[in-house]
Design a protein around this nucleic acid. Structure first.
Lengths: 167, 167
DNA sequence: TAGAAGTTGAGCAGAAATCCCAATGCCGTC
DNA sequence: GACGGCATTGGGATTTCTGCTCAACTTCTA
């Protein structure tokens, strides 16, 4: 690590990940040539990324549409605070609920849900309403993915932040 | 492909991805042994997953917290429909905006934003408000990641859907 | 100044990838 | 029922990469 870093990743990590974005097939050896660092360094960095938990599961790379779930919706859930545990288990049991955040406000949850179609979404919504502790839901269907999940902007900023080796 | 499939992925694809989730280090040869299919098949499937776009960028596996962005917020943006292009470009230019959906309702956007801290989020929010076409914003800060993004539930369902080879 | 940490270059044995090919079983179609 | 695609399978040969170690060097830190 070149500088005392409040983050877990530094410039080289970012450049490695960006290079892997361009070509996920490239080997550690190819990366070292591209980035101008030693192969051992790339190897050590990748190993550390895995160990530190900076990289999450492989399935995170999935496109839900490829699984047949082309519909994305965001549900606001009003819950009773005393039933938080029950709500957590209930949501966990529904595979279509792929992400949940507890947000500011009066015990509100924000859930990201995928579905095959609107009928499927209706079924899932009812399933959620049956969970003990859920008081109200409000659904916002994504009609267009304005911007697919991305990290390259943040990575590019980080990659350029520190000194770069000559290319 | 065993069956005519409305989806892009079938049971074997799902099982390959699940196995890679358990052990991202496992090779195609190890996967073939684990899953009971030929090594060439695993190789062909992985190649197709990459080509078909079912797997998105490598950076999707990133944990934003590792980049120093520990704060997650969801912004509801009310926009004027006539300025949709301007809004798109404006949001694109802000790296902290990592995901945007156009939702049902009166020309509303839902944006997922990361920030270093609340002050950073305040700065970003102001930056968004300066975009031509943005009328109002409403911010919901994630105080707890109730359920981190996951796909294993959907994958497991898909993996069990069709006939499995004896193990 | 001394120590810790990261990077580097080198080497090496074993494993894996990347090709090839032909045979097979399963499908919908003609 | 015969046919041509399509995916899978098994085997083999060559090239490449991985995984690991080690010592030397630079840089930042205490």
């Amino acid at each position: 690590m070149t500088i005392p870093n409040p983050r877990n990743l530094d410039s080289l990590d970012a450049r490695i990940i960006l290079a892997l974005d361009k070509d996920p097939e490239s080997s550690a050896l190819a990366l070292s040539r591209t980035l101008g660092v030693a192969r051992n360094t790339v190897h050590a960095r990748l190993a550390r990324l895995e160990r530190s938990g900076a990289l999450s599961s492989f399935s995170r790379r999935l496109d839900p549409a490829a699984l047949g779930y082309g519909l994305i919706a965001f549900l606001s859930l009003a819950i009773s605070q005393t039933r938080a545990g029950s709500v957590e288990n209930g949501l966990e049991a529904i595979p279509e609920v792929i992400e949940v955040h507890a947000t500011t406000g009066d015990a509100d949850l924000m859930a990201k849900v995928v579905a095959r179609d609107t009928a499927d979404l209706y079924r899932i919504t009812n399933q959620i309403l049956e969970i003990e502790g859920i008081q109200r839901t409000s659904t916002a269907i994504s009609v267009l993915e304005f911007m697919p999940p991305r990290f390259d902007g943040l990575l590019n900023r980080l990659a350029k932040q520190e000194s770069r080796p000559p290319e």
